[in-house]
């Protein structure tokens, strides 16, 4: 039996950025449809079982309804859907628990539907299980926009061994973080220190409050915090280094840069310095109080007595290059 996990975040892409920056929303009904299309792709390559967690947002409820209401005269070539037995709190820890269970139940690949924040949580627990990343979030830098039918075929092909996973998977970097010596869930793209006192609505968009930015990679065509690095000193996803940028209010900073900080929002950012962040180089943040934003969401509040350390690491998650998989399948004629 070949098993795939699907982790679909019902909460992604509905935060305050809808208000301040015309960011798009994806309804639960659409998320449910994305999963259904993925199931079609997975079924086409013979995946037997899909694991999902129950969610309070309604994605799984919608799936169950779709299964119940499907036309009896049209065969539903979907894998068996198994809902993980676990308490659901509606919190981020649900995602962590679900991925732990998927590992235990021998999922060969995990498909992730969410934004950078969702992928960050999945990456923390997935170990060496490859991820197929489908963007349904706001500032989507780590996952790409993928049609889930094709992504389902690719995920299934990797899980079934129709392609060599070493040829189609990328080893990603990540940023580790310790607060007062205690390891926290790291980041896949960026850690930003802001002068905000409170986590509040989580999103980061007030550029005058940005103080320090640590990046695993920075692409010039990115959206969100990593666009600052991308427009200053691009760093590739596979480069053996990252980037550190010192930031401040525009009126007191050495350089000003206009960046697309969120979808629909281009704002000036004050730059005071840029340097390479070397692999495994230990570093401690300079700011004395504020919040730490991980992959674009304020997650940790810290004060003057707290120490925050950040390090660039090689052992991020493996991600499947869907395009490469499909090319391999085409070349080998595996879908004919």
């Amino acid at each position: 039996m070949t098993t795939i996990g699907i982790l679909a975040n019902p909460a992604a892409a509905r935060d305050v950025r809808r208000l301040i920056a015309r960011a798009s929303s994806i309804s639960i009904a659409e998320r449910c449809a994305i999963v259904q299309r993925a199931l079609t792709g997975l079924g086409a390559v013979g995946i037997d079982r899909v694991l999902m967690m129950f969610d309070r947002g309604g994605i799984v409820s919608g799936l169950e309804r779709a299964i119940e209401h499907h036309r009896r005269d049209v065969p539903l070539r979907w894998p068996e859907l198994e809902i993980l037995e676990m308490p659901v709190t509606g919190e981020a820890r649900d995602t962590l628990k679900a991925v732990q269970l998927m590992r235990r139940k021998d999922a060969k690949v995990i498909m992730v539907l969410g934004g950078d924040g969702t992928h960050r949580l999945v990456a923390h627990e997935c170990g060496t299980i490859p991820l197929v990343c489908i963007s349904t979030g706001t500032n989507n830098v780590f996952p790409e926009f993928q049609e889930s039918t094709v992504a389902g075929i690719a995920a299934g092909a990797v899980a079934k061994g129709l392609v060599d996973r070493n040829e189609v998977c990328r080893q990603n970097k990540r940023l580790g973080i310790r607060v007062n010596g205690q390891p926290q869930i790291g980041a896949l793209i960026d850690i930003c220190i802001t002068s905000d006192n409170w986590i509040g609505s989580r999103a980061v968009w007030r550029t005058e409050n940005l103080r320090e930015l640590y990046l695993t990679f920075a692409e010039p065509d990115a959206i969100g915090l990593s666009s600052i690095g991308g427009l200053l000193k691009p760093v590739g996803r596979e480069a053996e280094e990252g980037l550190v940028i010192e930031l401040g209010p525009c009126d007191t900073s050495r350089q000003k840069l206009e960046v697309p900080i969120a979808p629909g929002l281009i704002e000036p950012v004050g730059i005071n310095g840029v340097r390479r962040l070397m692999m495994e180089e230990p570093g401690r943040i300079r700011s004395r109080s504020g919040t730490v934003a991980l992959d674009g969401e304020r997650e940790i509040e810290f004060a003057k007595n707290d120490t925050v350390e950040i390090v660039l690491e090689r052992d991020g998650p493996l991600t499947v290059d869907v395009s490469k998989v499909m090319k391999k399948l085409a070349t080998k004629g595996r879908l004919s």
Binding site: V16, R18, L19, S27, I28, G57, G58, I59
Partner: peptide, 20 residues
């Protein structure tokens, strides 16, 4: 409707919707 998420109705009216 929309699996219990009233916020998703906002888009139907061209209005921003935020859940928290």
């Amino acid at each position: 409707s929309l699996s219990g998420n009233a916020v998703d109705r906002a888009a139907g009216f061209g209005m921003p919707g935020v859940v928290l």
